[in-house]
Design a protein around this nucleic acid. Structure first.
Length: 424
RNA sequence: GGAGGGGUGCCGGAGUGGUUAAUCGGAGCAGUCUGUAAAAUUGCCGCCCGAAAGGGCUACGCAGGUUCAAAUCCUGCCCCCUCCA
């Protein structure tokens, strides 16, 4: 088993333990473990309370990948039990509980997303239900008896809520306990996650030592700030970039990031060497480099990471053409429907008589193409001048269209309209 | 077991009989500007019909009731939170 492990130079070690790392508890022990030549079991839990993995998750997954390249064993835990509780970490409100069905459906979509970053062959995937499925009340009581309320109230978010008289659900206290027990169950040597996991990790350490295991090392990465530029990237805040998003969208979302996030993203999500990052940093500080240029590099790196260089190149071309030169993209989704049918849906009204043959009520089409949720919304968009057909801004919802016309809504949404009655 | 507070639109949070599709803030969307950045600024922000003017429907925990008129008053029910024990 030792065969795959590379000799570790102190330079390698520094890169592994420093680049994009917030804190390691206990760093010295971590170094010793790495030097011991033992294959380490590196654990990270994923809470499948939503179906997507985003760049925030990728930060730790990439680090895990690096360890994997050194021959260590990754253990990913699908936290199907704790997901039902709802992780309170860093959130000062009680989370809604999910049903087991929701959790399972979400968890299923996780696997392939993990393996966009980590090596599937060297990854052990475990479900919490493997061990908690057989838990009975006695087990729960034994587990809870090991800690006190005071210990848990030490945790910042609990403490804050408690002192402000806001609710803390009893199940929320269970969350760190279950997560800690996971470490016991898989005999973790190291646990990975964001800095918001510190408390949970430490409970894991304690529990392991209470149960006769060597306490795990806690490996914490900074939290990735989301596209809003302020809060941690998370699904529930809607400020995320999903790993399965199409290359063009992913590229575009990176381009729309606040400038202040550029360096953070470079550090946490790319392999651009530290020396180069330092140049970037200085360039930004002295304003000798346009942040947009760096962001394009960043966007390319990220798309390459999750897809490949070719697709990243294409995404960049698309971006340049559509958003910088304001041209129409070469490819866009098609919306196929019968023009006649749409026209017919307004039949009977005075307007339909005034409508010439080639004209259509665009608001219906916008809804049909999924570019607006309702006709009311579509009408508003038209009224605000956000809608154009073949480059012509339209001001009334009745407008001429032809099969193959390009419908544009807002800056970034395009659809080609194809008449299913009249295609040759 | 006792006392108190509360359930309003995506979120926060006003509103105690009509002029309330509901003040305000945040989020979001769109316009101008631009680097799909920030800042600034303007507009929109329940659904349906209508080219428009306009009209209709649904909505303030649930169900009833009073009233010409209810998010606002009455009755019952459900749910949530805090404190004391």
């Amino acid at each position: 088993m030792n065969a795959g492990r590379k000799v570790t130079t102190s330079q390698d070690m520094d890169r592994l333990l420093k680049r994009g790392v917030a804190e390691i508890i206990v760093e010295d022990e971590m170094r010793q473990l790495l030097l011991s030549g033992k294959q380490l079991r590196l654990k990270e839990g994923f809470d499948p309370s939503s179906p997507d993995i985003h760049l925030g998750h990728v930060v730790t997954l990439r680090k895990l990948r690096q360890f994997q390249e050194w021959g260590h064993q990754i253990v990913l835990i699908v936290a199907d039990w704790t997901a039902q509780i709802g992780d309170p970490s860093g959130v000062n409100v009680t989370r809604p509980m999910l049903t087991i069905e929701q959790v399972k459906a979400n968890a299923r979509t996780y696997m392939e997303q993990f393996f966009k970053v980590v090596d599937k062959e060297k990854t052990e995937v475990r479900w919490q239900s493997e061990w908690f499925g057989g838990f009975d009340l006695g087990d729960v009581i034994r587990l809870t008896s090991k800690f006190t309320v005071a210990q848990f109230l030490a945790r910042e978010d609990f403490n804050k809520r408690y002192s402000e008289g806001r609710p803390i659900a009893l199940t929320e206290f269970l969350y760190p306990l279950l997560q800690a027990y996971d470490s016991v169950a898989v005999k973790a040597d190291v646990e990975f996650g964001g800095t918001d996991q510190k408390f949970n990790f430490l409970v894991g350490r304690e529990l392991q030592s209470m149960m006769g295991q060597r306490p795990q090392q806690c490996f914490m990465m900074p939290l990735l700030i989301g596209t809003d530029g302020a809060l941690k990237m998370s699904k529930s805040l809607g400020n995320y970039i999903g790993v399965t998003e199409p290359p063009d969208d992913m590229y575009g979302k990176v381009m729309s990031l606040a400038d202040s996030l550029i360096m953070l993203y470079f550090e946490l999500l790319t392999d651009v060497p530290d020396a180069e990052l330092e140049e970037f940093r200085q360039g930004l500080a002295r304003e000798t480099v346009n942040p947009m240029v760096l962001k394009k590099r960043l966007a390319r790196e990220i798309v390459t990471l999750l897809y490949d260089a070719d697709l990243a190149g294409e995404a960049e071309e698309h971006f340049t053409r559509v958003f910088q030169q304001r041209e129409i993209p070469e490819e866009m989704p098609e919306c196929r429907f019968s023009f006649q049918e749409v026209a017919a849906s307004t039949a009977g009204s005075a307007a339909s008589k005034a409508m010439r043959k080639s004209e259509c009520d665009i608001s219906h089409i916008i809804v049909r193409a999924g570019l607006a949720k309702s006709r009311s919304e579509a009408s508003r968009l038209i009224a605000q001048g956000a809608v154009s057909v073949d480059g012509e801004k339209i001001s009334a919802s009745i407008a001429p269209i032809a099969s193959g016309s390009v419908l544009r809504v807002g800056k970034r949404r395009f659809v080609k309209m194809i008449d299913t009655n009249n295609k040759k």
